[in-house]
Design a protein around this nucleic acid. Structure first.
Lengths: 213, 213
DNA sequence: GGCGTCATCCGTAAATATACCGAATTGTAT
DNA sequence: ATACAATTCGGTATATTTACGGATGACGCC
């Protein structure tokens, strides 16, 4: 018995491509194609595939929400995200929703087939490039954490207000501090980040991920 | 006689999708699929299609270069860019290379077929969303031009140096001006952009496209 | 207890930036 | 020719930032 596959993709071209790729594989069978999230949810009520290839982007119903809903309602259905999105936030979001695979659209026939079989067998299948992204992100997170510990809590607070274009006096008022205290924090920050001037300060802080922008 | 189509796309999935989409159209015929630029150039020596669907991204050989080379060597071949790139620079680059069509990958079967037939008939076929992008860009260009005329040449010069984190004294030295003159320019810029402080100044200037960053 | 960091505050000084004033020259457009 | 904008320079004053010095109390860690 072949593995039943459904495709949910708002790009008709992709759906056709997947269909064509798997056309001559006896191990798998495309049983449904859905062009949007609503069609997918309706279709799932009638028939559940073994593996769902998912890439839906539509207003109010993002792919990650869809993945969550389906994982909740049909836990037996394996989900492979098949997208061009290599944005780390998107990736993490999807994985958090409990998807079983993540494949980018540059995928080759054999790889796609392998991904389908892997998740069907209960394994995870994550594209190598996606794994790279995740690793990069973890290093980035570590780096930011180190940079963050560079500045004390109060300094970070002052830094944020500086970045928000407040003057030292205004910051002192906001934080109920003496002007001199804020000036002192300011000096410490400049010294710790090793820059000259407010402009360079804010730039470096942004670069280090120390402030929300 | 059907229209001969070649597909050049480093995404196998897309090539398969196009093939599948056009499978049952008697008016067109896919005669070749190339996974990269080199294969495309080699293949073109042997056989020229009527229409080339092009989306190649590879190091050292971007799609726009490829389009230019092919347009030069085989002027009779109509080129349709079939890509997800809706970046305005990419679009303008491609159109400048003289491509005959520009279609995004969310394309439907009928639209793709229509695009092929249009360019084959000697017309242009540009995706609606791409046209929107071009229009947006024209408005943006106009806006930037207006903003640019807001500041005089010298002011823009000073502004750039301010953004490069030079102090007024340093700028004066660089431009062989009195410190007071540079201060005056600085005031004018602050006043014209209606902001307070260097940080906000540079931010607004960046937003208005007045400085290279 | 002692040590270090953090957070708070102060003094003094110099450098920088902002603000408003005026004015001369030059070139361009009306 | 006259008017206007751009560019240049000056004075004065204040606000802000940067830089150096030191001090105190709180708090956690060894």
């Amino acid at each position: 018995m072949s593995i039943k596959i459904a495709i949910a993709d708002d790009h008709r071209l992709i759906a056709e491509g997947v269909q064509n790729m798997l056309r001559y594989s006896s191990e798998v069978e495309v049983v449904a194609i859905y062009p949007d999230g609503n069609a997918l949810l309706e279709g799932m009520e009638r028939v559940q595939p073994d593996v769902l290839l998912l890439d839906i982007g539509m207003p109010g119903m993002q792919g990650d929400e869809l993945a969550g809903i389906i994982k909740q309602q049909y836990p037996a259905v394996k989900i492979i995200v098949l997208t061009n999105q290599d944005n780390i936030f998107y990736i993490k979001n999807m994985l958090q929703q409990g998807v079983n695979g993540y494949v980018l659209k540059h995928v080759e026939k054999e790889q796609l087939l392998q991904a389908v079989k892997s998740v069907y067998a209960g394994e995870e299948y994550i594209d190598g490039l996606v794994l790279d992204r995740i690793e990069e992100d973890e290093e980035e997170q570590k780096r930011v954490a180190e940079n963050a510990s560079l500045l004390s809590g109060r300094e970070k607070e002052v830094l944020q207000l500086i970045a928000d274009n407040y003057t030292t006096n205004e910051i002192a008022e906001k934080l109920f501090l003496s002007r001199r205290t804020v000036e002192h924090h300011r000096e410490s920050i400049l010294s710790k980040l090793d820059v000259k001037g407010t402009l360079a300060l804010v730039r470096k802080a942004t670069e280090l991920g120390l402030i929300r922008s």
